[in-house]
Design a protein around this nucleic acid. Structure first.
Lengths: 138, 138
DNA sequence: AAAAACCGATTGCAAAATACAACCAGTTTT
DNA sequence: AAAACTGGTTGTATTTTGCAATCGGTTTTT
């Protein structure tokens, strides 16, 4: 059992995603289709192997992601999102909306994000349903 | 000038709010009307004075908040939100929505958050306009 | 079959962020 | 005049993050 400092919604969310790396890994899973350790390692922000390893373990412990062996490659491990993880997508998009308004976002990234936001809530929902089809094993 | 690792929307948002404390301070400003150092200090999660001091400085440097002397008390300092800060409210509400679904949120906090979420985007917008009237000096 | 490259990591060490407790000078209240 | 309150700072300990090298096992290339 975990010793929470409070049971406020904000605190309980930050307890899981309140760090510099977790949402970037989830971003790569959602928006770039990454699923292997080495793919995450090659992110724009160049995460270190030990930190990536730690974050993946923490996200797995929180049931944001889960892993399974790659059927085609005995050594590879496939990292996939749970429903709890996929439901972080609206947070990611609100982060993006805020950054587009106030931060020096790269123009290509901005166009991609703006395209989703222009689609409104329905666009976000359809992306989440797409992610569920790919990540959840039914 | 700041040395960013990337110019991705997620990274640029996490650069500002990707820590355990910043959003909790902003939550207290938005939802509990706190504006003094000692009020933030008395948060549910009991932040330390030096960390609070650091976070307030960082948030001020990012122009999320600003401060001004209290007109009625020479020693007091009033901390207020900028528009950039008030625009973080949708992120806070998406965090809350996610926590309500997946985390062991306190029942009273849950009711308060749920009431806002049930009001839909218009409710969120009206709270933001209320915050603008209180925090922005026009 | 041997060598090289690739797989998800772990280990050791340095640096930075966070946490705790004590304290401080100036201001206001008692 | 004393006590309590204001927004902090300082020192120290612990935890988290960052960097570089390395590892045993697997797959691919030669």
């Amino acid at each position: 059992m975990k010793a929470y400092k409070s049971f406020c919604p904000q605190y309980l969310a930050l307890d899981v995603i309140g760090d510099k790396w977790s949402l970037l890994i989830i971003r790569d899973m959602m928006l770039e289709g990454k699923k292997y350790f080495r793919e995450f390692l090659a992110s724009k922000e160049s995460i270190a192997t030990n930190i990536l390893s730690n974050r993946l373990k923490a996200l797995e412990a929180e049931e944001i992601i889960y892993k399974k062996p790659d059927p085609d490659h005995k050594q590879k491990i496939v990292y996939l999102l749970t429903e709890k993880g996929i439901d972080l997508f609206p947070i990611i998009m609100e982060n993006a909306r805020w950054s587009l308004k106030y931060q020096p976002v790269d123009q290509n990234d901005a166009k991609e994000a703006q395209a989703i936001l222009d689609g409104g809530p329905m666009k976000i929902q359809s992306i989440m349903e797409y992610l569920k089809r790919i990540h959840l094993d039914n």
